[in-house]
């Protein structure tokens, strides 16, 4: 029994030990442009929702810009709005 318990613990630690970093800080992007859709698409879920910062790991400075850029891109018809769930 003792062995199984330790295994569970080790697995949990393994899962949460992956390092997160801000994509825009690493690429040294100062201002996020709403026109580069290829980058913005990476921060959108399949439903069209904006990915939370705690999932993607972006810093607060860039997350604020990201949300604005995505909303601008939606207005211009470059990105989709949130789709309602079917059924």
């Amino acid at each position: 029994m003792s062995n199984t318990q330790t295994n569970h613990r080790s697995q949990k630690k393994y899962y949460f030990s992956r390092k997160k970093y801000c994509f825009f800080c690493k690429e040294r992007i100062k201002l996020i442009d709403y026109k580069d859709v290829k980058i913005l698409e990476n921060f959108i879920l399949d439903t069209g929702k904006i990915q939370p910062a705690r999932v993607s790991g972006t810093c607060s400075y860039h997350q604020k810009q990201l949300t604005k850029a995505i909303k601008r891109a939606r207005h211009m018809g470059l990105l989709k709005f949130v789709e309602p769930r079917r059924g």
């Binding site: 800080c25 040294r28 100062k30 201002l31 709403y34 400075y61 601008r72 207005h75 211009m76 018809g77």
Partner: peptide, 23 residues
């Protein structure tokens, strides 16, 4: 014209330039 957007860019550059010092 179906959609349009007019943005000002230079006022945000000042804030962004603070990041370069950090980097």
């Amino acid at each position: 014209v179906m959609r349009f957007l007019v943005l000002r860019l230079d006022d945000k550059l000042k804030k962004a330039n603070k990041l370069t010092k950090k980097w």
